[in-house]
Amino acid sequence: MPATFNHTSHAICGNAQHEKMEKKKMTEVKINELFVPKGTKRRGGKKLKKDNGVCIHEAGTPNAPAVNLARVQVNSPNSVVNGWHFSVDDKEAWQSFPLDEVAEHSGKREGNDTTVAIEIADKVTAGEYWRKAVDNAAWLAAWILRQKGHTKAVHKQNIWQHNDWSGKDCPRQIRKGNPVNWAAFVAKVNEYLAAMLAPASAPTPAPAPQPQPNKALVEAFVTRLYAASLDRAPDPEGFKGWVNALMNRALDPWQVARGIVLSDESIGQRETTEEWVKELYRALLGREPDVDGEQNWLARLYTDMSRVAVVDGILGSSEFSGVAAAMGF
């Protein structure tokens, strides 16, 4: 193999395959706003007296999505007093009251004055629609609790059934285990709440940009490899290829040195073993060999070591690492 630049031949290529794992995103429910007009029968504007968390209802209105439940409150603000803060279905949530205002939803004064109401739009109480609507309600409950500073949902402390206040069989489907029972629903709320409260992973810092190699030293290194190993000046094409590969960090000094010193052209040189060791020192380290080092390598070559192993031995030395470091590697 001639000592001309050949990236494919000399680059070290890994063949390990990396499986990219994509973390599943947590459910996030879009919250729209359609507030009941303030100062109406439904929305008197009173502030909650204390924070007892959230109260879960089921609307009991077949075929009505969440947006319809929200519109009912806005379109008839003076017909009745009862109201609720949020309506949720399988796709989205609609907010009708601010989080700090009273809505008449529980059937008990304490429930109205202390909790935020969620109505699950039970237009269908089976299949994927209902499973997703209930799951979205759990996310919404967690979101509200988080806004109010809670770190865990506990039944009758900060998460309530409508039944807890009024005795009504509501939320009816969840109370009978469709699609999950109440304990599982509260557990799901806590799962979402924990995820919301978890600290965001710190972004992986971008690697520091590597300094540009010293072009003058890179060119001198390539020129020296040609002169010592091939006994000639570099041809323009080969010189440009090796220098560009080093400057762009496509190859490192260890790869370039092996590529030239162990090329067919270099191996075909008719020098003695003693001459070859001297040339190797000049090529790789830029100096004449010290007596002890030269004698050590010669002794190994005359017994059990190949020339390739000697090249790798010098390339693995701390002295050659210093040569590479001086160039910027």
Rank of each mutant, 00 (worst) to 15 (best):
D292M: 12
R71G: 02
S318W: 00
A324F: 02
N68L: 11
A202S: 08
V72Y: 05
E265F: 03
N112L: 00
R131G: 09
M247R: 01
F329E: 15
K176C: 03
A200F: 02
N78D: 15
E288Y: 04
A184V: 10
A133W: 01
A3P: 04
V29H: 04
Q17R: 12
K156N: 14
R109E: 15
R131P: 01
A194P: 06
A195I: 04
D164R: 01
V134N: 05
I144L: 10
K47A: 05
N52V: 00
K41L: 13
D90H: 12
N75P: 01
V308R: 12
R307L: 07
S106L: 00
D100M: 02
Y302M: 13
A103G: 01
N63L: 12
A228L: 08
Q161Y: 01
P234G: 10
D169Y: 06
A133F: 03
A11N: 06
W182G: 07
V256L: 08
A126F: 06
D290P: 06
D135C: 04
V261P: 04
E128F: 04
V72G: 06
N68D: 13
A200T: 14
L284D: 05
A133R: 03
W276K: 15
P213R: 13
F35A: 04
V74N: 03
L280P: 08
E191T: 13
P211W: 00
G45F: 01
A187K: 14
R43E: 04
W160F: 11
C170P: 00
V36S: 00
S96K: 00
D90P: 04
I144T: 08
W297S: 07
A216P: 06
A16H: 07
R71Y: 05
E19N: 11
R249Y: 02
G83T: 00
G60R: 02
P207L: 01
H10Q: 13
T303N: 14
E33S: 14
F239I: 03
V154G: 03
H57V: 00
K20A: 12
G53M: 05
E33R: 15
G238N: 08
L280M: 12
V310R: 02
A233I: 05
G127I: 09
V88P: 09
E265T: 12
R270G: 06
A195F: 00
W139A: 04
Y281H: 15
S87Q: 03
R224W: 04
N6L: 10
M305F: 09
M247H: 01
P2S: 11
L197Y: 10
D164F: 09
G238Y: 05
E22W: 02
P253Q: 03
G238L: 07
V222H: 09
E191N: 12
V67H: 08
D290S: 09
H18V: 15
K24D: 07
I31C: 09
V311T: 13
N136K: 05
T303L: 11
A142Y: 05
N136G: 09
V243S: 11
N78F: 04
E319H: 06
E294T: 10
V54S: 04
A59R: 10
T61N: 09
Q212S: 13
E128T: 13
R71V: 04
L197D: 15
S229N: 13
E104A: 11
P289H: 09
P98L: 05
V310H: 02
K91N: 13
P179F: 05
T125D: 11
A257M: 09
A245H: 05
L285P: 07
W297H: 13
N190T: 12
Q73M: 07
A299M: 14
I56F: 02
K41P: 00
A183V: 14
